[in-house]
């Protein structure tokens, strides 16, 4: 006969011994302890996204204001290009934050259920994040190398940067 006076039991997988298609306590615990750090990075990524959106908005406004000036020359188009690059960076940051948020949510579901299919989901989300992060890193690295190559091979670029730095 069922005892109605027993206290309720937690059904969270990482403190309940479970069997059959379940994930070990150690694996769930490692991912549970990973989450605060990845959540911290997600918060920083979204703060960065907001800052980039604000920066691109200001750059576009600056370009718009410059078009009113007669002596602006090529500056508005240069500002538009910079604004576009910053906007792309904002979109990329947003996507990275979104992928990492999905990874964190999958960890939550794994901690609650402890099921192997949820572990597959966590690892799949992680793979998606690493795919995007690797591609972004590769593109950034190539652009940095191109920048330094231009700096070394084209003297005008170096002179322009030196004069800009010295005011």
């Amino acid at each position: 006969m069922e005892n109605n006076y027993l206290p309720p039991k937690a059904v969270v997988a990482d403190i309940t011994q479970v069997s059959g298609g379940e994930v070990s306590h150690g694996i769930v615990d490692q991912l549970r302890r990973t989450k605060p750090w990845s959540l911290f990075i997600v918060i920083l990524i979204f703060i960065m996204t907001v800052l980039l959106v604000l920066a691109s908005g200001m750059i576009f406004l600056g370009a718009l204001a410059m078009t009113q000036l007669e002596q602006a020359g090529k500056m508005p188009s240069l500002f538009l290009v910079i604004g576009l690059v910053v906007s792309v960076a904002a979109v990329v940051y947003f996507l990275l934050g979104l992928f990492l948020t999905k990874f964190n949510s999958a960890i939550d579901r794994l901690v609650m259920s402890g099921k192997q299919d949820q572990l597959v989901e966590v690892l799949f989300r992680q793979k998606k994040f690493w795919m995007l992060a690797s591609i972004v890193m590769a593109v950034t690295l190539v652009l940095t190398i191109v920048y330094y190559a231009a700096l070394i091979t084209i003297p005008e670029v170096r002179e322009m940067l030196s004069s800009a730095a010295s005011g």
Binding site: Q17, S19, G20, E22, V23, S24, Q116, D117, L119, V120
Partner: peptide, 10 residues
């Protein structure tokens, strides 16, 4: 607890 994990994980 399961001793082996599914092939999907691998």
């Amino acid at each position: 607890m399961a001793d082996t994990l599914s092939a999907d994980i691998s």
